[in-house]
Computed example of a mutant assay.
Amino acid sequence: ATTRALSDIYGEMHVHRLAGFFRRFRDALNGMAKVSGGRVAILTPGPLNETYYEHAYIARYLGIMLLEGEDLTVSGGRLMVRTVSGLMPVSVLWRRLDAAFADPLELRPDSQIGTPGLVEAIRRGAVSAVNALGSGLMETRAMFAFLPKISRELRNEGLLLPSVATWWCGRDADRDHVLANLDRMVIGPALSTRLAFEDDDCTRLGSALVAGERAELIAL
């Protein structure tokens, strides 16, 4: 609809369709299947999640299953989906829920949206997990400080898009720089994955720190 309504703008800006990317992505998911006939699925927290519409749309677009934790079970070390025809194997699982809630047996015991035994199935290699458990580490703020070097080491080139300037205070040089420029800094927990403006309880503007808070920070 947008291309019809704004056809002149689309033509001038040479907008590329995303269909090719999604076809390759779907083929890559299917290529990860460890069992012939095994299903490919998205694991979603469910309709109460704010991005559920995205999960539903992409599952339908790619032609793969959209599953919640209760739709799955682990039997004989293999991940299975409950269907009207009985249990069917799942070979590739694209995780779209927080890792901590994925398995109440080995992760958060209070999780009501995970699948008991999922971690063990992944550990055995019985299912390929996209967005592997623990990959959220890459979203932590401290990791931003290392992204330029990681890119140079792994890709032999700099970042195509610059990362947010970040200093990890676990390194003496970074800590000294932060303290010397405290009024220009945003101070927050290194392992937080939330955006700075979402984390008011733990994230502070350096310029807003009172004398006692500054002294406490310097003493850490």
Rank of each mutant, 00 (worst) to 15 (best):
V90M: 00
R39K: 14
M32E: 10
I187N: 02
D110P: 04
K149V: 14
M32Y: 05
V35N: 12
G11D: 03
E198R: 07
D71Y: 10
W168N: 09
P109V: 08
E106K: 10
E213V: 05
L205K: 09
R60L: 11
E198S: 09
P104L: 02
F101P: 04
H16W: 12
R60A: 15
D183R: 06
R39Q: 10
A28M: 12
G136I: 10
G77H: 01
G38Q: 00
D71L: 11
A211V: 12
A196E: 08
L147S: 02
E216G: 14
A219W: 07
Y61A: 10
F144A: 14
D200E: 13
C202V: 06
P104A: 02
A215M: 12
L29H: 08
R95N: 10
M88D: 15
L62R: 04
A1V: 11
S7F: 06
G158M: 00
L105D: 13
W167C: 06
A129E: 10
Q112D: 07
A1D: 14
A41K: 01
M143S: 08
Y53S: 14
F101N: 11
A190Y: 11
K149N: 13
F197M: 15
V130R: 03
T140F: 08
V119N: 12
P45L: 05
A1N: 13
V127T: 02
D8G: 10
A129K: 02
V119W: 09
M88Y: 15
L217H: 04
P104M: 03
P109T: 08
A190N: 14
E106Y: 08
P116W: 02
A59M: 05
G134M: 06
